[in-house]
Design a protein around this nucleic acid. Structure first.
Length: 922
RNA sequence: AGGCGCGUAGCUCAGUGGUAGAGCACUACCUUGACAUGGUAGGGGUCGCCAGUUCAAUCCUGGCCGCGCCUACCA
């Protein structure tokens, strides 16, 4: 093995081998386990959120595969309607073309081209992350099978009356010219104004004052509303006002909706351009006057003066004109929530159009019950509350989009406007016996992207065909996703799954946090703080990183600022950390909290961990290859052998518990702690004297060699789900020595704690050994005695057990603590001036002659006295409290007593040593 | 407005009704035959604040402060 760990070389090699060997394909044996990848945008690229999510899914997949389950991780991509169409449109715009110039068919062809061109970026990146998905089953939401599923679902829902076409207010994006679902609209608080307008009361010289944040909509007002109990206005209800600028008479109505406390207590009602007003309009049978075009310009329903003006220009003009007429009472500064399209960023207008809707309430009912009855479990549990809140208030889902890229709605109209829904024009003609004389035209719209995503858990498995895959893996095991798409996706999959499969689409939903930058900022292109997971894996030099972050900014003036921040944070660019280090970092950060700050310090630490593992393996191989590891002769296990095996068993338990409870962070932590601080720091060091000393028996040597190789081999399996590449690379060398055969570690069994049972004696005795060594090291460290300086050591007040332990384990202790000589002193013998460490009652005395600074030793002991006294004080206070003694459990009290005794003894010893020192210096 | 989450070492985060932890950063010493991407030792925290429950609270309860997020039709 090379001296240094170099991830690139390893990682590129193994993935191809795995894929070629079909290692990602479900085994066909064991209980089914299945994860559906949340399909990324087909033309997108992998960002940190994906990389994080993919790490979790791959770790779970590999873990369950190693448990012997019939494991499928289903890959695929989403056509991402609006997003993809926008990208291609922008490309066209750059050539001075619009999609209308091309026409629908040519444009859609163009999008397919773009999809082919860029569509495998994501899969390449997934491969680089080590994702063990079954590529043979890769699906795309617009491929033939999934499109058929979409059509089938649409038709069935329509026939059941759960899909209908309706004219109502939708969220209209005037830039994209399409309707949006409520979820695709993001409301943000923005600074605006509240205009107070006066409307003259007909038959009176009085006016009514109404307040509005969108004065231009007054052109479409068809009433003014007041609260029915508002005495100020009660006498006016039933009368009319003369709408300024339009010169129309509109009624004054009373409606509970009005809050008499707000503004003037009078509300102008524009049923065509406000959802509340729309409802009021329905209640009072008001006229609905739409004053906007598709572009949100003023249309011909408005007075001529405003026609053709953009809505914001019209706003200015309306206000000016009202002011001129003396009808503008005042203008207040006002913060308001402005709804914007999540893709275009333009202000969305409530707009009256014909759209297709899914009637969700009946579907939602079942979906709520599925979570309430525990058929689906959210992890962490509290997300179910978010889910309920939304599901209980769910509105019908607008599924039609005025786009070209997507699943065309399978509905046809005849000239009378009758609607026919079916899989094709032919089938409709046949079904409804429509002759050739009747012309049909298909609905121009496509379906919301999330409509097809909602079918993902069964459409990818072949539905509506009753395939084996469907029978095997539906319901899937777990959905791994971010909280941001609980409503968009999770809830809708649950509804559709229950409806069409008669069962939940997944048994658990693991909701993970969002990856943020080191300052807690959301990573975004415009902030220039994006990290590309591949740059963390393969590294990137500073100039390339700066160029990447500054490229294609919406606001180019931010570039210098971004460059400066980037140069400050990464003065040397980003080194290549490798996939395993990145994955381990994600695993370690995968805590239950909501967001995750990505800390470069962590990935560096875990890269070092990989290097540590690499070198530990080198050491193990160096000492096992070409040696007898127990195959030929008798073996005997030393104390460290027994101890490390027991510790491994514990670690296996912890890792399994971590995976089972979606606590990859705890699994990673246990693995890290074990590998570095038990296996490397202690066990490998202890193995050296055993293997090197001439006095060890061959049986012991064989025992240690066998333990080295077996523990390493099992550890590799233990961490493989998180770090697939490095473990595979090492395992290939290690496995044969451990008596394991197999083509890949990924197809091995996950380690069992039964193979490494607990050994309480070994743990207790090792504790003694470790405390012994730590005591000496502490003296050495605090006295600044160089590590290579061999120390003489005297032992006093040793118990029978101490002597026994020394006899058995002294040899490697001597080496580990770097002792030159060790001698027992009689309990009553006069010890020379020494630095002292305590091990229970036994004193470890390092004679001071020429070694130790008396003042330093005194300072060291005094520090210990201080600590122990503080502890003792706490203990004594507790024990002297009668309530504690009588109320606390007996074992807690007893423990406290023992601790007190121990501390007292320690303090006596320390005092003794200090006295001795006083004798010397005095 | 409602809901949720967070506040623990300088930073990023675990954790527990009974002795507060890790990584990074910091200090000192050390290139010892796996590893300087390393080793050894060390410093550093009234666990956001205030009450309550308890023999005992960083942990449970309530309130407050600060931060973040989600949902919502106040013109």
């Amino acid at each position: 093995m090379d001296k240094a760990y170099s991830p690139q070389e390893i990682e590129t090699r193994w993935y191809d081998t795995w894929e070629k060997n079909g290692n990602f394909v479900p085994s066909g044996k064991g209980d089914p386990y299945c994860i559906m990848i949340p399909p990324p945008n087909v033309t997108g690229t992998l960002h940190m959120g994906h990389a994080f999510q993919d790490t979790i899914m791959d770790a779970l997949t590999r873990y369950h595969r190693m448990l012997g389950m019939n494991t499928l991780w289903q890959p695929g991509t989403d056509h991402a309607g609006i997003a993809t169409q926008m990208v291609v449109e922008r490309q066209l715009n750059a050539q001075g073309l619009s999609r209308q110039d091309l026409g629908r068919e040519a444009f859609v062809d163009k999008v397919w081209e773009w999809k082919e061109e860029s569509g495998d970026t994501i899969s390449r990146q997934l491969r680089r992350m080590g994702s063990s998905v079954d590529w043979k089953r890769e699906r795309f939401t617009m491929d033939a099978g999934l499109s058929a599923a979409v059509q089938e679902v649409f038709i069935r829902l329509f026939k059941e009356g759960l899909i209908y076409r309706g004219k109502r207010l939708v969220n209209w994006d005037p830039v994209l010219h399409t309707a949006l679902s409520d979820l695709e609209v993001l409301s943000q608080e923005e600074d605006g104004h509240l205009w107070h307008l006066r409307y003259p009361i007909e038959g009176s010289d009085q006016t009514l004052t109404v307040a509005t944040t969108r004065p231009e909509t007054m052109l479409g007002d068809t009433a003014v509303a007041v609260h029915p109990a508002d005495e100020r206005y009660l006498h006016l209800v039933g009368k009319q006002v003369r709408l300024p600028l339009c010169d129309r008479l509109i009624p004054i109505v009373a409606d509970d909706y009005v809050d008499p406390e707000f503004g003037s207590g009078c509300v102008k009602i524009t049923p065509a351009h406000d959802v509340n007003d729309y409802e009021i309009g329905k209640r009072h049978d008001l006229e609905i006057i739409n004053i906007l075009t598709d572009d949100a310009a003023i249309n011909d329903a408005a007075p001529a003066a405003y026609r053709g003006m953009d809505r914001f220009d019209a706003r200015k003009k309306v206000v000016e004109d009202l002011d001129q007429l003396g009808l503008l009472e005042r203008v207040d500064e006002h913060k308001l929530m402005v709804p914007r399209g999540d893709r275009s960023g333009s202000v969305v207008e409530p707009y009256l159009t014909d759209q297709w809707y899914v009637k969700v309430e009946p579907l939602a009912k079942e979906a709520i019950a599925a979570v309430e009855t525990g058929k689906i479990r959210f992890v962490p549990e509290n997300w179910s509350k978010t889910y309920y809140d939304w599901m209980h208030n769910i509105q019908d889902w607008c599924i039609s989009r005025q786009l070209w890229w997507g699943h065309r709605i399978p509905a046809w109209y005849d000239e009378q406007g009758n609607i026919y829904v079916g899989s094709s024009e032919e089938s409709i003609r046949a079904e409804h016996k429509l002759g050739g004389d009747i012309s049909l035209r298909q609905d121009e719209d496509v379906l919301d992207t999330w409509f097809s995503s909602a079918l993902w858990p069964f459409s990818t498995l072949g539905w509506p065909e009753q395939t084996d895959a469907l029978k095997t893996w539906y319901p899937t095991s777990v959905l791994v996703t971010g909280f941001d798409i609980i409503f968009f996706w999770v809830a809708r999959m649950i509804m559709m799954g229950l409806k069409f499969m008669g069962d939940v689409p997944f048994r658990e939903v693991y909701i993970h946090g969002l990856i943020r930058d080191q300052d807690g900022q959301k990573m975004s292109k415009s902030k220039g703080n994006v990290l590309d997971p591949l740059d963390l894996i393969d590294g990137i030099d500073l100039d390339s990183l700066v160029a990447k972050r500054a490229a294609g900014l919406m606001q180019p003036h931010m570039a210098p600022k971004i460059e400066k921040a980037t140069r400050r944070q990464f003065p040397d660019g980003i080194p290549a950390y490798g996939t395993d280090a990145l994955r381990f970092t994600f695993a370690a950060l995968a805590t239950t909290g909501r967001d995750i700050r990505f800390d470069m310090g962590r990935i560096e630490g875990y890269r070092n961990f990989c290097n540590k593992l690499w070198n530990a393996a080198r050491y193990v191989l160096m000492n096992t290859e070409d040696y007898d590891c127990g195959a030929q002769g008798k073996i005997e296990l030393s104390l460290p052998d027994r101890w490390i095996r027991a510790r491994l068993g514990q670690t296996i338990e912890e890792a399994r518990k971590g995976f089972a409870g979606y606590r990859l962070d705890l699994a990673a932590q246990s693995i890290y702690e074990f590998t570095w601080h038990q296996f490397c720091d202690w066990y490998l060091e202890l193995s050296k004297p055993i293997l090197q000393s001439e006095s060890t028996t061959d049986a012991l040597r064989r025992g240690t060699r066998q333990t080295l190789i077996q523990v390493l081999e099992a550890s590799l399996r233990l961490m493989h789900p998180i770090m697939p590449f490095i473990t595979e690379e090492i395992w290939q060398r290690v496995a044969p020595l451990a008596g394991k055969t197999g083509a890949s570690v990924m197809l091995q069994d996950y380690p069992c704690s039964e193979d490494f049972p607990d050994d309480a004696d070994a743990r207790a005795h090792m504790e003694w050994v470790m405390q012994f060594v730590l005591g000496i090291r502490q003296v050495r460290g605090e006295m600044d005695i160089p590590p290579n300086r061999q120390l003489p050591l005297l032992l006093q007040d040793a118990s029978e057990l101490d002597r026994q332990l020394w006899d058995s384990h002294g040899a490697y202790l001597q080496s580990l603590a770097r002792l030159e000589s060790v001698d027992f002193l009689e309990d009553d013998a006069e010890a020379p001036a020494s630095a002292t460490a305590l091990l229970g009652n036994m004193k470890l005395l390092v004679p001071m002659a020429g070694l130790i600074d008396v003042a330093a030793e005194r300072a060291r002991l005094e520090k210990q006295v201080q600590r122990s006294e503080a502890d003792l004080d706490k203990c004594e206070r507790k024990l002297s409290d009668k309530r504690f003694v009588s109320n606390a459990p007996a074992e807690v009290v007893e423990k406290e007593r023992q601790r007190t005794e121990m501390l007292r003894q320690e303090l006596r010893h320390l005092a003794e040593r200090l006295e001795k020192l006083a004798g010397i210096s005095g």
